[in-house]
Design a protein around this nucleic acid. Sequence first.
RNA 1: GUGGGCGUAGCUCAGCUGGUUAGAGUACCGGAUUGUGAUUCCGGUUGUCGGGGGUUCGAAUCCCCUCGCUCACCCCA
Length: 457
Amino acid sequence: MARSSARTPPGVLELLPLDQIAFQGMLDTIRRNYERFGFLPVETPVMEYADVLLTKSGGETERQVYFVQSTGALEKSERPELALRFDLTVPLARYVAEHEHDLNFPFRRYQMQRVYRGERAQRGRFREFYQCDVDVVGKDALSVRYDAEIPAVIYSVFRDLAIGPFTIQLNNRRLMRGWFEGLGIADGERQMLVLREVDKLDKRGPDAVRETLTGDGFGLSGEVADRILAFVRVRSTSLADAHTQLDALGSGSETFEQGRAELREVLDLIHAFGVPESHFALNLSIARGLDYYTGTVYETSLNDHPQIGSICSGGRYENLAGNYTKSHLPGVGISIGATRLYWQLREAGLIGTAASTVKVLVTQMMPEHLPHYLALAGELRDGGIATEVVMDPSKLGKQFKYADRAGIRFVAVLGEDELARGVVTIKDLRREDQFEVARAELAAALMVELAQAEITG
RNA sequence: GUGGGCGUAGCUCAGCUGGUUAGAGUACCGGAUUGUGAUUCCGGUUGUCGGGGGUUCGAAUCCCCUCGCUCACCCCA
């Protein structure tokens, strides 16, 4: 029989167990911090009604969405009724609209699930990936103060992930639009196009952006382009500096002043939340491509690894669920692309293979004593220690090798000698060290050993 | 969706302008070592040279088509 080759489609990430453990450890850290800030868990289905997903943006998203079709419907070539979600924000909007009367507002939820995008796979770009979102959704209104809480959550997450120094960069869409208005770019669509273009400043450089802005598509004068570039080049080095830089922009339209006031309040509160000044900054080129953002926008990057780019991003949106309900539901939130983040960190050597979740391997010295080995494993498990037992006889050396490859740090050896003396030999494969412990104290002694291994590595 | 690059062992790659039986390292398996892994030594397995067609006495090598992967753009986590 001709076999088809075992392979995954491009754009998906599949991991070996020890890497999966490392990845899940990352998700655990994110979840722990989301919960620490009082966000509630929510899951939504992978598939939604196509009309629910596609009301919003149309165009670009429609090109990237995967439709779900049953075989029967496929044969009748009907228009697909269902599609796979491409982010967690649109399902959140649907969720809030659907359960509006059963939810408490402000509604604080977090959601960590996979999303799907039908785009050409690229280095570090996936077609199936995890997003870890936190959002606060208000009813009728949501104070700008919540815009400051989100960076506090982000700070807490990345501090715990311990992947080096990072900066949460902030900007405000109102401030930008107000600035553009002052330059005579009043049309909303046109502002959006300019926003998208200046968002690429760090990637393409000021010369390339200037060329595009003054080119055929935009037709801006050189003077206007220069004023835009001067604006988006603003970066702050401290909280006081941020305020000084905002002052230096001069006065502007009502929208502009509103944006500036919001930004000031958010910056001050982020500091009050306890985020060190070294970890957040003003960056007026941060715009975000998505058009539903209305106010504050965020993007976080690692200071020592600029090539990785944004590791987390989000912002404020004024009318989240406008497509599903008459209620006015403003929100603010961010998303961590966990799959991409993990992949990038591994590429950069910032994250390695984890140790196994299995803490001890009980070896099989003499096959006739298997019941002893099973009993020993039972004692360890009752003591809360994840334990595996070698079930088939083989050379001890092989069993050690198995443990080593499997990432199991400790092996328990119980031979004739140990049985006679009521002790167990424990070997730490990492430290190449072994010791004997009385059978009755085994679990307790190992717990100490494991705690110590956790600290010293 | 638009445009470039690359396909040789599980992985990283060598293989000069066509020339016998396609190689190295690594990984894997076995042994040295029947109460001790990762190091060392010895031995072994591994390929439709991406696929199809053409040129030729002869193709991994040259030509065409196709498939796959990959990079950039659009967009974005």
